[in-house]
Nucleic acid binder design. Structure first.
Lengths: 203, 203
DNA sequence: GTCTATATTCGGATAGAC
DNA sequence: GTCTATCCGAATATAGAC
């Protein structure tokens, strides 16, 4: 969607919209607010984005973009898919924690559908990244590093669920004595990935 | 906390409070509202619960109670810890989906700390269940069914993260083609547990 | 008009009678 | 256990002075 190069102006609108939507929700922000904050006319906003919905979807799309980049550069790790995945997961979690606004925006939409926009459009955006992740796991399977009798989609969703859950309940989880010794995101993420890759059952 | 037998009146207050807090949030509900809805005086509410905070924590506590029961009856599965865990996870997810209000209340508090209550009190309540879960996984380790070189706490948190994530993003996830063939909670939960127990790595 | 002071309302909490 | 009455503080509304 936002693969086309955005003009300077469109980019600034997108940035401001992301900020406002994250803080005040979909209904709490008017195109007027955004235009005023950017310092352009309402008409200009509509010139760049067909509707409030389209702008909002573009914001979600942009929020997913960094993860996509991280995932795509993973393809370069030709050798060790596991190591690449582990790094991506770690990067992802650290980004969530250090820059929570975009994530909160997306999660609010996913969990509550707060904008009222047809959820299939949101699903489509999110699925692009999900598919990339599944693809990488499948690559690990054909390379022989990963076992072939697990569902790649299930592994993918578990990886994401771990990170989202860590992100959301960070404040509570860090108070649990079991996590006292891995209170930094890197170590937590690494431990979570190891646990997932080793599995539960004894051989 | 609510192990003591609650009087009839206190129980009704708790129920109504749970319903109202779930729908309107902590700040959106006054003791007056609750008292009026129950049909008792405000003072009576304070007779049963020392403060609004205490009542709210009692509601959270009660919301966690069912999961605790499920977990405790798991101890009876002396033989197959894995099977027991799988069933508990499945039950948990199905309960989340069929009765989302209490979960939403707890999650709002965990994720956003919306009441402003000292999060360590919330952490303490939640940790009781978490510790039970970890305990069961450790039991699987000593019985030899589970490998001993994984962190039980990490497995526990992953199990919970899966269910919470499924619960929260059910509407989106079910639209992903990869999940089209497991669109009922039982199958999804089972597949997730299998994936977690088998692990990612080929032997 | 705007600012400040006063009044009213509302939510949390307590005391004491029944 | 339940009630009525009441207190305190914060927020909100309102009215009158400037």
């Amino acid at each position: 969607m936002n693969n086309e190069v955005l003009s300077q102006g469109a980019h600034r609108i997108l940035e401001v919209a992301a900020h406002l939507f994250a803080r005040q929700g979909y209904a709490g922000v008017s195109i007027n607010d955004i235009a005023a904050e950017v310092g352009v006319s309402k008409a200009n906003v509509f010139h760049h984005f067909a509707s409030k919905e389209a702008l909002y979807l573009a914001v979600i799309d942009a929020a997913c973009d960094e993860f996509k980049t991280e995932l795509e550069c993973l393809k370069n790790h030709e050798r060790d898919v596991a190591l690449g995945l582990k790094q991506v997961a770690c990067q992802h979690l650290m980004r969530l924690l250090s820059n929570p606004d975009p994530a909160r925006l997306v999660l609010r939409e996913v969990f509550k559908g707060e904008s009222g926009i047809d959820s299939s459009q949101v699903a489509k955006i999110l699925h692009r990244n999900f598919a990339l992740l599944v693809e990488q796991i499948e690559r690990g399977q054909v390379s022989g590093q990963f076992r072939r009798d697990t569902d790649p989609a299930m592994v993918a969703v578990t990886l994401i669920a771990q990170n989202i859950f860590f992100f959301q309940s960070w404040e509570i989880l860090r108070q649990f004595p079991e996590f006292q010794n891995l209170d930094c995101a890197e170590r937590l993420s690494a431990a979570a990935f190891d646990s997932l890759s080793k599995g539960l059952f004894a051989k």
